[in-house]
């Protein structure tokens, strides 16, 4: 079942100006529910632009984006914000955590905008996710005191806490040693077995090989 369908997607920055950048040039991509996909490409190839568009953080210049059958191009900013909250869990490059905050505060962020969990259910939900990722003991620890692997687990916990359909991970292992990187990939693979769709942007071929499908992007075109 198609959950993401990109059809002839173009993205231009500074359109019509001298410094126009044509970041995506007719991208077609279909992702089925429960797939795990690696998007690979060199710097400047359009990976991040593609991730932004898939994650509803940016709009296309041209082409159609269907998310679970709905045309994203027709959505308002408020609707896009709700979609981001409900559908996506983002695992960001270099963790994207607030170092001076506690683990629980970081993990709670998606729930602040959630319609899935009432405020009375949110603490239980956070505890469940932290337990699942084996970091419950770190709940009240400040992020700055965690190791790289622990930080990445917190980032994944935050991505999962609102029970999204799709996990978007941007270079999730780039800051980790190989042992910890493998652990994180196993966590992501495990999520796939529970029906989540996993999309990982990576430079690392070893990470990519562990996923179902590799999409190579070069100069804004999928090879």
């Amino acid at each position: 079942m198609e959950i993401i369908k990109l059809n002839n997607i173009h993205k231009k920055y500074n359109e019509g100006k001298q410094n126009e950048v044509h970041a995506l040039r007719g991208v077609d991509l279909v992702v089925n529910k429960g797939d795990s996909i690696a998007i690979m490409g060199v710097s400047g190839s359009g990976k991040s632009t593609l991730l932004n568009i898939i994650g509803c953080l940016d709009k296309t210049t041209e082409g159609d984006y269907l998310l679970d059958g709905a045309n994203i191009n027709l959505k308002t900013a408020t609707e896009l914000a709700e979609i981001r909250n409900a559908m996506f869990g983002f695992v960001l490059q270099s963790y994207g955590l607030i170092d001076s905050d506690k683990v629980i505060s970081n993990v709670r962020i998606p729930l602040l905008f959630s319609k899935k969990y009432k405020p009375s259910e949110q603490n239980d939900r956070i505890d469940t996710i932290l337990n699942k990722l084996k970091i419950f003991d770190l709940k009240n620890t400040k992020v700055r005191n965690l190791s790289g692997g622990q930080k990445q687990r917190v980032a994944i916990a935050r991505a999962l806490v609102n029970d999204p359909e799709i996990i978007l991970a941007d270079e999730p292992t780039s800051a980790l040693d190989s042992v910890t990187a493998n652990e994180i990939i196993e966590v992501l693979k495990d999520l796939q077995t529970k029906g989540k769709t996993i999309i990982v942007v990576t430079h690392d071929i070893n990470v990519a090989k562990k996923l179902d499908k590799i999409v190579l992007i070069q100069d804004g075109i999928i090879q």
């Binding site: 994650g55 900013a77 607030i98």
Partner: peptide
């Protein structure tokens, strides 16, 4: 500092920019 970063995270997870 934190505010831009925090706002970035919140925007990603469903807050409206406005």
């Amino acid at each position: 500092d934190k505010m831009t970063k925090r706002s970035g995270i919140m925007a990603i997870y469903g807050a409206r920019r406005s």
